[in-house]
Nucleic acid binder design. Structure first.
Lengths: 340, 340
DNA sequence: CTGTTAGCGCATTCAA
DNA sequence: TTGAATGCGCTAACAG
């Protein structure tokens, strides 16, 4: 009820033709001032238009614009789980990039589910996004994105595919070498889900570094879990209860390492004294844990920049970038104790 | 060039009229089968259409649909910082809700900046979202959302506004009472940014609970920081270095509490023995910290459900919901020690 | 410098 | 049960 009061609140939001009418110009002119082109507009006219827009509280309709331009001025991001610290940070940085360039960000949370991931990708693509950045659970089975430029983060399945790669193997090798430098000899791997981004290469790095020193690197030293605190806790507990418990662990993500630390505490195993730990990611999680985690730090801002650039300027960056990572020593590896 | 080769690769993605042509029907019929209505379609015809869609790899254009329907089948979420565990979890749950209902989620990260927040809101609204959920830095200065239903999370500025409120005051009182039950008498407050969601009411609850017991509750017992680990660390350090150091702290968020725990460790202050801590949020951060945080747990899934429902069925839920919270005892309050 | 106008892809009313 | 035609709001020729 009380909808036909009239004159008070406009039924629809103002459109460009309302503005044109009020300003006494054509709709084209309104476009020209809104978009600052492509044709010039007389200063006086422009002022009238601006004034009319103001009066009407005019807001351009981005959807109509998107239909016309075949571009929504938006990019999509699909991750397995935004509530994971690393992916959250990634979403934040990408949102930053997008915003700075005038793009909106559509987020698809795959909920660690491959079907959900497919559905999210299809939904985003149908929304006419200008590009898609995806951290896939299984890059081989990602839905077809047609003409939407798509960049995979830290994974590559098909050859010609756009990717931003992180130096997973190198990082893992750094981590393991560091552990060896601390005199550790039985270095386990707390790995992530098969096929998850970076996992295979981090694993390879772990193995290669161990191999080079003639240290044990068999599958019996590997445990796996999801990228989560709970996963790291369970897998860590299993590992730490073994008779031939390792004296160090390289972990494929910060959140898993948080779980591992909790497991060590529960088992009464001192870190770093009895168990040295180095994780991959180097998010804020690593800085404020107990003990603070020595970690292979991913430059998330750089990664987001590279991804954003690649996705919007397809062609140029077809060379797969390799983002460097670096070891940031904190306490979980034993460095602090050594220093003391 | 090579555009008239035909039959090979279509220049544009297939549209409804390509499908119609191939199936030998009108575009209206294609609509009917795509949308399963509003008119019936003969089984044989439907089969032909489905077949044509398949052949062409047809994907409906959500933007065109949105323009026509004046609804993008999408909702927006604006938070101060997605990389904050709590907001990340919220984004995830809301994404879940939206997905289940066939909606996409547009995410706006305000980057803890009020101007950025305004811009994000405007951008989302212009994208014709069907509803907006916002956790605002300053609800009074949120951009006008016009006819887009908007629900504020845990804050209310204007009277008629849609909100999903959490029982902040009650939760804070529970926390403080619990601390008092452990014999603590000098209970500080590590508070959040002024105007941030829930902060004022949590502060009120802290004060009221203390007041009721005749315990000190002056402003000198309050320190403030952003909702971040780093903020909690700095403010915590300041607090713990005072001559009249408190014997307990109620913290307005998990991430701040993580920072406080790190500060206590740095200062050599034992938690919970010398300093009991209870935080607000109860995310996974609380479960795997050292010691695990006793926390007032927010039912994030419930909150997301309430917000989603409210935003899409405006009118119905105009009564401001009050979501209950509950204290989950872990170790930082001293319960474990008591039990032992 | 400004006005007219033809679509962008889709849903739907009106005819058939 | 199906087809033809209209318009959602906007951009960008094309024509003054």
């Amino acid at each position: 009820m009380t909808d036909e009061e009239g004159t008070v609140a406009p039924t629809h939001a103002a459109t460009r033709s309302d503005v044109a009418r009020l300003a006494g110009v054509s709709t084209a002119v309104v476009s020209y001032v809104v978009n600052n082109g492509p044709r010039p507009v007389a200063a006086a006219t422009r002022a009238r238009v601006l004034d009319a827009m103001e009066q009407l509280g005019y807001r351009p309709n981005a959807v109509a614009r998107a239909l016309r331009l075949r571009s929504a001025q938006a990019i999509g991001l699909v991750v397995p789980d935004v509530s994971n610290t690393y992916f959250g940070a990634l979403a934040r940085e990408l949102s930053d990039q997008a915003f700075a360039a005038g793009y909106a960000l559509l987020l698809g949370d795959a909920d660690n589910d491959i079907d959900r991931e497919r559905a999210q990708v299809e939904s985003l693509v149908s929304h006419q996004i200008d590009g898609l950045v995806i951290v896939s659970l299984d890059p081989a089975s990602v839905a077809e994105t047609g003409s939407t430029p798509t960049v995979f983060l830290d994974q590559r399945s098909r050859p010609g595919q756009l990717s931003v790669m992180v130096d997973d193997r190198g990082g893992a090798m750094q981590a393991v070498s560091h552990l060896i430098g601390h005199g550790r000899t039985r270095i386990a791997l707390l790995s992530g889900p098969r096929g998850a981004p970076g996992v295979e290469r981090r694993q390879q790095g772990w193995r290669d570094a161990l191999q080079a020193e003639g240290l044990p690197n068999g599958d019996e030293l590997i445990v796996r879990s999801e990228f989560s605190r709970a996963g790291g806790f369970e897998a860590g507990r299993e590992l730490l209860r073994r008779a031939d418990r390792p004296d160090a662990v390289f972990v494929t993500s910060d959140v898993q390492a948080l779980g591992l630390l909790a497991a060590a505490r529960r088992e009464g195993i001192g870190v770093p004294d009895e168990l040295a730990v180095i994780s991959f990611d180097g998010t804020e999680d690593a800085v404020y844990s107990d003990p603070p985690l020595t970690a292979i730090e991913q430059p998330i801002r750089l990664i987001a920049e590279a991804a954003f650039t690649a996705v919007l300027q397809k062609g140029l960056e077809r060379s797969p970038l390799l983002i460097p990572v670096e070891l940031v020593a904190r306490e979980s590896c034993g460095c602090a104790a050594t220093a003391r």
